[in-house]
Simulated scan of single mutants.
Amino acid sequence: MTDLPLQDRIALVVGASRGIGYETALALAKAGAHVVATARTQGGLEELDDAIFAATGKHATLIPFDLVDGGAIDRLGGALFDRFSKLDIWVQSAAIMGAEGLTPVAHADVRGFAKIEKTNFTAVYRLIRSLEPLLRASDAGRAIYLTSSVASAPKAFWGAYAATKAGAEALMKCWADEIESTNIRATIVDPGRMRTQLRAQAYPGEEPETVIHPSAIGPLMVELARGDREPALEVKFRDWSAVQTG
């Protein structure tokens, strides 16, 4: 168990085809978990599965779907119950910025704004609703939500993205308070500056080599996913030489 702290745990990673979600899924698999990976892109999920198989000799379960499809989220819970009867770990990494994510609020396209809202906020509510019974069936359910610094420090042109991330963060905190007496623990992780596609979209002039690679977050995610530890509600990275918890 020292070498494989997540041996035989069932871990769902939403948004696993690239970036932090990809690296988290790979780290959880290397720690012994069976990974259920979801994303919009089949090709990205297959690349992840190849990496997991190369590292562990085992395949992940791949479920391609779009988070704007609320019915698919509802069906996800049923499918996980039919196959595994429980869920030990849920990592919510998926989020989009879109063109409206960096647009003046008054100029945002209605359809584009609605897609960001459905993906970044409403999907989190629907996932909580779909997955809570499965997490309750675990002896130590762990939910990890990836947030952004703009959720707590919004700024010009980030309206849609900042508002939906802030809303989802508040939702997770309310839920964490509701499940305090259960065996589920929720953690909100602000990873700070990381070399992701979303960050490259937001800061196109930034040199990628100046930003830390998302693989660095893997050990932390494994630690937060462990059932034998009591995780903090919030973990914030401002400087990777020090971790602030609260």
Rank of each mutant, 00 (worst) to 15 (best):
G44P: 13
A225F: 04
E132Q: 11
G167R: 01
L233H: 13
R129E: 14
P191N: 09
S138Q: 03
I116L: 10
F81A: 06
V222Q: 06
D69H: 03
F157I: 02
P133C: 05
T38D: 03
G141V: 11
L80N: 08
A156E: 04
R229G: 04
S152Y: 11
V36I: 13
P191T: 14
L233Y: 00
G246K: 02
H59M: 03
R238L: 06
I63G: 15
E169L: 04
A60Y: 10
K30R: 09
K115F: 13
A94D: 08
F65L: 07
V189S: 07
D177M: 10
P204L: 14
G192E: 01
P133S: 01
A11L: 06
P104I: 09
L171T: 09
P191R: 15
G77M: 03
D228N: 07
F121P: 07
A11F: 00
R195K: 10
K165P: 05
I144C: 10
D109P: 02
R75V: 15
W90V: 14
L28C: 06
E178H: 11
A156I: 01
E234T: 07
S215P: 00
T56F: 02
E23A: 07
D49I: 07
G19N: 09
A99K: 09
Q7L: 03
G246D: 09
L135G: 10
S241A: 13
L62I: 08
L198M: 15
T245E: 13
V91T: 03
Y203T: 06
L80H: 09
I89W: 11
L135E: 15
G44K: 11
I217H: 00
R129C: 00
A216C: 11
P154C: 00
D190Y: 14
S215L: 09
V150Q: 05
S152C: 06
V105P: 05
T245F: 15
E46P: 03
A106P: 04
M97Y: 02
G159M: 11
H107G: 01
D228F: 02
R193S: 12
I52K: 01
L48R: 02
R83L: 05
M194V: 06
S17E: 02
E47W: 00
G227P: 02
R226W: 05
L4V: 11
A27V: 08
R226V: 10
D69M: 01
T164R: 12
G70L: 07
Y125L: 08
G71C: 08
R129G: 00
Y145K: 09
P214K: 06
D88P: 03
P154E: 04
D109E: 02
K118I: 10
D88L: 04
I116E: 07
A151D: 04
E223V: 05
P231K: 11
T187N: 12
L4S: 15
V35R: 13
E23W: 00
R142P: 01
R199I: 08
E207L: 15
R226K: 12
A114M: 00
L26F: 05
P204I: 13
D3R: 15
R229M: 04
G78E: 15
V36Q: 05
I188N: 10
K173P: 13
A39F: 06
F84K: 10
A72S: 01
A151R: 04
P219S: 08
G167A: 03
V211K: 03
R229N: 05
W90I: 12
R199Y: 07
E209P: 07
A11D: 04
S152W: 08
R9V: 02
T119A: 13
D190R: 12
F121R: 09
G141N: 12
T38H: 03
L224C: 01
